[in-house]
């Protein structure tokens, strides 16, 4: 270890597992989602329809990662409030300290690391809010996705019982008017297509989010020189020892 630095833990093993599960799921969700949107490769398999099943496998993959996202999101939501490690909600509420810290980090980013005067040993407000945006985008994906999905269960039945479509309707039907509202549909004139449109748009916002996310982690690693990128792998980074 470099002189004058100490190790701090930033991500618990559970958080890191969730992180990498999300990464893989996101890649699959985008690849299959884009195929569902407009099948971009053709099946040159000289086989009967039932064997190739290309769209069906894409949809299956999409729904499988959707369920994984559901589970990880519920865990993340729980940890948000009840984690023994760090409780992120304490960093997203607009208290004077949080607001000050948020802008301190942002200004340091804009001034190319000329004003790094905040505590970088824990997850700062800027970081936490940036991740909160991701979780909100993902939650919207889940809700709109489940709304698109539940209409395939038109009978109101499913292999795991009638409660499942019932619950999905109860939880996600409001995304139809909400999506219509986002798309500027006249009131009372929204339909399932609006949900599909916003589901697709939101994918792009997530892609942009990911691109900046990766850039920012690399940038931080280079300029802060605290090994930030290692957080996602070993769970730890380094900060200057105050006493040193």
């Amino acid at each position: 270890m470099k002189e004058g630095y100490k190790k701090v833990e930033r991500m618990t093993p559970a958080m890191r597992i969730i992180h990498w599960v999300n990464v893989l799921s996101m890649i699959v969700a985008i690849a299959t989602g884009l195929y569902i949107a407009a099948p971009y490769y053709q099946t040159f398999i000289a086989d009967s329809a039932v064997d190739k099943y290309v769209m069906a496998w894409n949809r299956w993959g999409h729904f499988m990662v959707a369920i994984i996202f559901d589970v990880t999101s519920i865990i993340v939501a729980y940890l948000y409030f009840f984690s023994c490690f760090e409780k992120p909600w304490k960093k997203v509420i607009p208290t004077p300290t949080n607001i000050k810290e948020f802008f301190a980090v942002l200004i340091n980013l804009i001034t190319l690391n000329r004003s790094k005067n905040f505590d970088s040993s824990h997850s700062d407000s800027f970081n936490t809010i940036y991740f909160a945006i991701f979780h909100l985008l993902l939650a919207w994906m889940l809700l709109t996705g489940l709304q698109l999905y539940v209409h395939a269960l038109a009978s109101g039945e499913s292999s795991i019982g009638a409660w499942w479509p019932w619950m999905l309707h109860a939880m996600t039907d409001w995304t139809i008017p909400a999506s219509g509202w986002i798309n500027g549909a006249a009131s009372g004139m929204s339909s399932l297509m609006d949900v599909r449109i916003t589901h697709h748009y939101t994918m792009w916002f997530i892609v942009v989010w990911v691109v900046f996310h990766i850039y920012y982690q690399v940038w931080r690693t280079i300029f802060w020189q605290e090994g930030d990128i290692a957080i996602a792998f070993g769970g730890e980074k380094f900060v200057k020892d105050k006493e040193a």
């Binding site: 099948p39 053709q42 099946t43 329809a49 039932v50 190739k52 099943y53 290309v54 769209m55 069906a56």
Partner: peptide, 8 residues
């Protein structure tokens, strides 16, 4: 069936 098969 053709939808599921990816035959368009």
């Amino acid at each position: 069936a053709h939808f599921d098969a990816g035959e368009y």
